[in-house]
Nucleic acid binder design. Structure first.
Length: 854
DNA sequence: GATCTCTTACTTTTT
DNA sequence: GTAAGAGATC
């Protein structure tokens, strides 16, 4: 059936389209007579007009738009989620679209959940029939149902970055590559980049023109072979394989095009090439941007379609009507007309280019889709004008961008507060004091406050101070639950049970817990598998034939195989029973319990928590299989712990700028504003990366609703030694009139100049300003003890803390802890300290460890 | 095969 | 300052 709309009004395909056709054509719908009249009475009923209430003209135009692909350029805080959710509701209410015809794509599960929730609030339970999901889970869903076509089982494993890296390590070992010169991490990144560009291993091989490229291609080929053997796909494969599927099987593509008549994409600026092509394939309209299609096979019908609508819609203004007419006029009967595409994004918030996001997707949207409508949302409903002016001023320094200026009618509000600390501890102390002051004055609750920094390592100092002053906080990011060793071990067992071919995970658990199958035994098995051209799992079954395997090892392997067989028998009893059986029968739990250290107890607790996760899953999905559970875990990764505001005082949130995207807080501290920290050291020499850093600054600034603090530190210890970094260039880009400097650097910028003057005689100071950070040379890191400011700064040679068993301490990164044991004395004194379930137990050399007695 | 010690290299990372 | 990985040693 068709959701095309005819000339002006009337019913097409049984769906009534009245009223709305013409209105759409005016992108700026004039004045918004808020329709305060009685028109929208009944609440529960889906009221199309009511959905437009309270929207500004641009938002309204985006909600109501019909036909041609639409780009909504949504500046920070301009209500893009509102536009998306209202558009979806409006499609249902006004245009008779069925929920099942809607596919809404986001990048994070959190965003997907939020969108689903907000749509449900508007349209009720009907929302359940829609696909509101991440790119990856949408692809998994498609791949599982079409797995047969591609020749792999529908129970394929999903390898995350860590699994992928492990497998690449195995591959490089097989290929006899020097792991020093070819680190798995780098190879994994390169292969990932290729996949993001939809370059498969054969294409990579054919194009490789240099030795390093040939090496990557070789690894890539072997890696894909191993993945296939393991019946596994990595994250990037999920997208690329789906694209391949749609391109190779026109009937499959048509099936999904018929199904998804409306495709909405959030955070479009973060899409990579593969995701872009995926969207294009699903919409069914080939892009017109020249030379874009890498390995694209468009069907004949599509070509016709694209050309038809492009020509017809040449007049950009009247896009909607033109496309509609063009389509109905030129569409070959039986073919599926393109779906409606609505993408929302903000090029200024593109901060994932380093991971393959391609900013051109949004910048050149109009070239890709010549009939496209573009709507600009510039009114910001989040921040004060002061904050927006700062954001505008900073981002305006980027050359590669389209002009856009956020504005607000919320008034100027408070000035931005600037603060220069002598060292990072003072910077953190200032933040803590300020939060304290605001909360005491009733101006904010801890939950209203966020502290942002460039890198995770910077959270340490804040935690230390916050613990000391008793300010409740939560760090987002860092070591995640699902990345903990014991959790990954347990997951590896489950994955092997679900997918016996999963070699990477099988080899991970082969000797975990230790059962006497060491490296030699593993190598013998791998060699045998290679020689016999069978998979590693098959080699286990034929252990008797493996040459060079000690009798004792062979016995251990047999027992291991029997263990797995026994566990598979438990699978029918459900995931919970299975997980418990794994923990029991493998001896994993017993080993941890026997260890009986604080650390092992923490691990046991984590495993218990994991069992809880499984229980919860089963309660919610009574029919849920192990495979379904594993999929959820793979794709949800860490169901992020951004504190939700429940109305209580809550806690201060600490996170990196990257994690901050999409969030907002009444009070924001943007810290570490130093060249070399933010912008990061590695970006100083690269204009493109610098622009990305600036976008990151823009994201940070625009998270703030009412109060923004910009802080930096004159000296900061990096890698254990103090470094003097010049003020961040971003600070200088904020108009001074907007900033109320609470404290500035000492008049004579002493240590920095002196250090520089004495160190690098010939270097020009101008470039040295950057070099101060970039060089990381010894001269830049003179110990503070020599400086006149040593008293204020952190002591370079720390006095060894005297501790006794049972003392309570705080540690820069681990937080609160209790001393379990002490060994040695003087400079070699060593303490074993329990930092609780999160950090576990650590053995620290007190001479260096940043611990303080409480 | 397990354990210890030493070296190394440290962005960001929605999935 | 830390943690992971490699190499040496028990």
């Amino acid at each position: 059936m068709s959701t095309l709309f005819g000339e002006s009004s009337g019913a097409v395909g049984g769906v009534p389209y009245d009223l709305f056709g013409p209105a759409v054509l005016a992108p700026t719908a004039g004045d918004e007579s808020r329709d305060g009249s009685g028109g929208s009475g009944g609440l529960p009923r889906l009221d199309a007009e009511g959905l437009l209430d309270g929207l500004n003209p641009q938002q309204r135009a985006a909600v109501v738009h019909i036909g041609a692909p639409m780009l909504v350029v949504a500046g920070a805080g301009s209500g893009k989620t509102r536009v998306l959710t209202h558009r979806i509701a409006y499609l249902l209410a006004a245009r008779g679209v069925r929920p099942g015809e809607i596919l809404a794509i986001t990048f994070t599960n959190k965003a997907a959940a939020e969108m689903r929730e907000r749509v449900s609030a508007l349209v009720g339970p009907r929302a359940r029939a829609m696909w509101v999901s991440t790119f990856h889970s949408a692809c998994v869903r498609i791949l599982r149902s079409e797995a047969k076509r591609l020749g792999f089982g529908s129970s394929f494993s999903i390898y995350d970055a860590a699994d992928a890296q492990r497998l690449i390590t195995l591959v490089t070992r097989d290929l006899d590559l020097d792991p020093k010169r070819h680190p798995a991490r780098g190879l994994a990144a390169q292969i990932s980049n290729l996949k993001n560009e939809l370059i498969d291993w054969e294409m990579a091989r054919d194009r490789a023109s240099s030795h390093p490229e040939r090496t990557v291609a070789e690894v890539y080929a072997a890696y894909q072979q191993r993945l296939a053997q393991a019946n596994a796909l990595d994250f990037d494969d999920l997208i690329m394989t789906t694209v391949n599927l749609l391109q190779a099987f026109p009937d499959v593509a048509e099936h999904y095009r018929r199904r998804f008549r409306h495709i909405l994409v959030d955070e479009y600026q973060d899409t990579n090439h593969a995701q872009y092509v995926l969207i294009r394939e699903l919409v069914g309209q080939p892009a017109h941007g020249a030379g874009r299609a890498v390995g694209t096979v468009a069907t004949g019908a599509d070509e016709t379609a694209g050309a038809g609508s492009a020509t017809a819609a040449a007049g950009a203004g009247a896009a909607g009507a033109a496309v509609a007419m063009g389509e109905s006029a030129t569409w070959p009967s039986g073919a599926v007309p393109p779906g409606e595409l609505c993408v929302v994004g903000d090029a200024d918030q593109s901060i994932y280019a380093f991971r393959g996001a391609n900013i051109r997707n949004i910048v050149e949207f109009e070239e890709d889709f010549p009939a496209a409508a573009v709507i600009l949302l510039e009114q910001n409903y989040r921040s004060t004008q002061t904050i927006l002016s700062a954001a505008n001023a900073v981002i305006a320094r980027n050359n590669q961008r389209k002009a856009k200026r956020l504005w607000s009618d919320a008034g100027d509000g408070e000035k931005i507060v600037g603060f220069v600390a002598d060292n990072e501890h003072d910077e953190a102390a200032f933040v803590a004091e300020e939060v304290d002051r605001l909360t005491d004055a009733g101006l904010a609750r801890p939950a209203d406050v966020a502290v942002f920094y460039r890198t995770n390592a910077q959270s340490r100092v804040f935690e230390e101070i916050f613990v000391r002053v008793g300010l409740p906080y939560r760090v987002v990011g860092g070591v995640r639950f699902y990345e903990r060793r014991e959790i990954r071990d347990l997951l590896a067992y489950l994955r092997v049970l679900a997918n016996p071919a999963d070699t990477v995970n099988l080899r991970r658990i082969l000797n975990v817990p230790r059962r006497g199958i060491g490296d030699r035994a593993e190598a013998a098995l791998a060699g045998f598998a290679e020689a016999e051209r069978i998979g590693f799992p098959a080699a286990l079954a034929r252990v008797g034939e493996v040459p060079g395997l000690a009798a004792r090892s062979a016995k251990a392997v047999r027992e291991f195989a029997a263990l797995l067989t026994g566990l598979r028998a438990v699978e029918a009893q459900g995931p919970v029973a299975l997980v418990e059986a794994v923990l029991e029968r493998t001896g994993y739990l017993a080993e941890l319990l026997a260890e009986d250290t604080i650390e092992s107890q923490g691990r046991v607790e984590n495993l218990q928590e994991f069992v809880g996760v499984v229980q919860e899953f089963v309660e919610r999905n009574p029919e849920g299989s192990l495979a379904a559970f594993l999929e959820q875990v793979s794709l949800v990764a860490d169901a992020d712990q951004i504190p939700t505001d429940d109305g209580s005082d809550g806690v201060v949130t600490l996170m990196t700028l990257h994690s901050a995207k999409g969030l907002e807080f009444p009070v924001v501290f943007l810290t570490g504003l130093e060249d070399g920290v933010f912008p990061h050291l590695r970006t100083l020499g690269d204009p493109a990366q610098m622009e990305e850093e600036r976008r990151l600054a823009y994201v940070g600034v625009t998270r703030a609703r009412a109060r923004l603090y910009l802080t930096r530190s004159v000296v900061r210890s990096a890698w254990g030694q103090p470094a003097y970094n010049p003020a961040s260039r971003f600070l200088g880009e904020v108009p001074d009139a907007l900033i109320d400097w609470r404290r500035l650097a000492e008049a004579a910028p002493p240590p920095a100049t002196r250090t520089w003057g004495s160190g690098s005689a010939g270097s020009s100071f101008g470039s040295a300003g950057l070099g101060a950070a970039a060089g990381g040379s010894a001269s830049a890191r003179r110990p503070l003890a020599n400086s006149p400011f040593a008293g204020r700064a952190r002591p370079a040679a720390r006095a060894v803390v005297e501790l006794n068993q049972g003392d309570r301490v705080t540690h820069d990164s681990f937080g609160l802890g209790v001393v379990v044991a002490i060994a040695g004395f003087g400079d070699s004194a060593e303490a074993t300290i329990d930092f609780g379930a999160e950090a576990g137990t650590k053995r620290l050399l007190l001479r260096y460890a940043p611990v303080e007695k409480l």
